[in-house]
């Protein structure tokens, strides 16, 4: 005996979450694009759009609370709804990090980039891929895929270390570059945080599917 209306509510909630995830994924790319091409108009648009993204998170949260309060979900239903709730929060955090990158674009003004961007766009692409796959694993209820996604965070961390070292060498060579280097470093840091958030999302997927709460990427760096 299916619980038709409840089931419809949960799948609708999932659709809404995936939809939200797709929008957030796009913002990651756009923010990097704004940094790379120094497109301030795009950056402005991203910052404005962030308010909408925040709003969506509250809507999703509210829908979760309504189901929790009225449907007394148990077992898998409970895990699904809790996971949706927490994934929505992580997504909003990711959007904030992307917004931070857009803010860097604006903050840098017309100042030329310190160096051509190679690793940072690579990081952003990885984040986008990771997020897409994480959301996919949630849609397909695939815990193994979620674990594989979490493992990708290592690559992002390594890229960040590389970026860090590279920018440090710039600063050591010429201390006047410190502001510009710090800007890029900060962008990298935001991307690294996005990777962590996606790892958290993967953990939520594993919980929703298996009921186990486990930390997926233990050697993660702060």
């Amino acid at each position: 005996m299916p619980r038709t209306s409840f089931d419809i509510s949960i799948s609708q909630l999932k659709v809404n979450l995936l939809d939200y995830g797709a929008r957030v994924e796009r913002v990651i790319g756009e923010s990097m694009e704004s940094l790379k091409t120094r497109d301030r108009a795009l950056a402005e648009a991203i910052i404005q759009n962030d308010a909408l993204l925040n709003e969506t998170r509250y809507e999703l949260e509210d829908q979760c609370y309504t189901l929790l309060a009225t449907q007394s979900p148990m077992a898998h239903d409970l895990r699904d709804i809790i996971s949706i709730l927490m994934v929505a929060i992580e997504l909003e955090r990711i959007a904030d990090h992307a917004k931070n990158i857009a803010e860097i674009t604006i903050y840098m003004g017309n100042e030329p980039l310190l160096k051509p961007l190679i690793d940072l766009p690579r990081m952003a692409e990885l984040c986008q891929l990771m997020l897409t796959r994480a959301l996919d694993s949630f849609a397909k209820q695939d815990a193994d895929e979620a674990k594989a996604v979490a493992a990708m965070d290592d690559e992002i961390d390594n890229l960040y270390k590389q970026v860090f070292r590279e920018l440090m060498s710039y600063i050591v060579e010429d201390p006047r570059t410190v502001t510009r280097a710090m800007n890029l470093l900060f962008a990298g840091h935001n991307l690294e945080r996005i990777g962590d958030c996606i790892t958290n999302i993967a953990e939520r997927v594993v919980y929703a599917v298996t009921g186990r709460l486990e930390e997926l990427n233990v050697q993660r760096q702060i």
């Binding site: 509510s9 609708q12 809404n16 969506t56 809507e59 829908q63 309504t66 189901l67």
Partner: peptide
């Protein structure tokens, strides 16, 4: 957006 609880 708020399709939860939408009745048909």
């Amino acid at each position: 957006m708020s399709a939860v609880g939408q009745s048909a």
